[in-house]
């Protein structure tokens, strides 16, 4: 039997330092885990872990601080951008990120996110858009698609009654304080790689002091969509992509020539 020579081997995959080596509480196939990993990898690559402070929101990612290995605070539902503002103003030389779901960010927290962006608050927002309220069991979110069935829109979202979904990135990109706002998706490896680049850009924005940065990540919620993990990625591709186009909505000129 041949013995393996580890010395000549190259590490091509390892656990990011910014992520604790723990099983998460996320459902099987949920892309919250993917998003965590990407953020951690970027912080590792930029060597930022030691100076980062995270702000968790209220949603399935409420326990994000159990997985990320740096300082963390937990905000009331929707208020993470305000809390992050408080942290960042006290520690302007540190890296501050919020990690928020769509219900948290653009329903109850619309005011806070809007004004953080308008102020050009130099923070980075990771925005998980899974078209529903995952944690509370799958109610309608502001991002729920027209006709989409949820536990509080049992006959499908009726836009006449419940109004239209919000395209958050497009909306916030109209604000002058925004330095970097893009939408990406986590439904397949190619898009996941693109998402990682965008997250890198967002933190570069913050490092350079170019204002508010946000990456919207289209994500799956197999549990509340009542789909298998694979079906969920297909559902995202077929239903969310047409409504939420992947694009760069705001890129500060100073970022234009950066490449990773």
């Amino acid at each position: 039997m041949a013995t393996t020579n580890f010395e000549n081997m190259q590490v091509i995959y390892q656990h990011p330092e910014s992520l604790l080596d723990k099983n998460t509480h996320y459902c099987p196939g949920c892309t919250h885990g993917v998003a965590h990993r990407l953020v951690a990898e970027v912080l590792d690559e930029m060597n930022l872990r030691d100076k980062t402070i995270g702000v968790a929101s209220v949603g399935c990612s409420v326990f994000a601080y159990n997985y990320f290995d740096f300082d963390f605070v937990e905000a009331p539902h929707g208020r993470a951008p305000a809390m992050a503002t408080g942290v960042k103003r006290v520690h302007p030389d540190k890296i501050v990120l919020t990690y928020q779901g769509d219900g948290d960010l653009i329903s109850i927290g619309t005011g806070e996110i809007t004004h953080a962006a308008a102020r050009g608050e130099n923070i980075t927002v990771i925005f998980i858009n899974n078209a529903n309220y995952g944690m509370t069991g799958g109610q309608m979110a502001p991002t729920t698609l027209p006709g989409q069935k949820t536990t509080s829109s049992p006959k499908g979202r009726d836009v006449e009654q419940a109004g239209y979904p919000i395209r958050t990135s497009e909306m916030l990109a109209t604000l002058d304080g925004a330095g970097y706002i893009v939408r990406r998706s986590l439904h397949d490896p190619k898009h996941i790689r693109q998402a990682k680049k965008a997250i890198r850009m967002a933190f570069e924005t913050q490092v350079r002091g170019l204002g508010f940065s946000m990456v919207e990540l289209l994500s799956t919620c197999p549990t509340n969509w009542h789909l298998s993990p694979v079906e969920a990625t297909h559902w995202l591709e077929e239903n969310m992509l047409p409504f939420y186009p992947l694009d760069d909505f705001k890129v500060h000129p100073a970022l234009k020539n950066l490449n990773f």
Partner: peptide, 8 residues
């Protein structure tokens, strides 16, 4: 029936 954007 209307689901509000928040308790506020």
């Amino acid at each position: 029936f209307l689901q509000a954007e928040s308790e506020l």
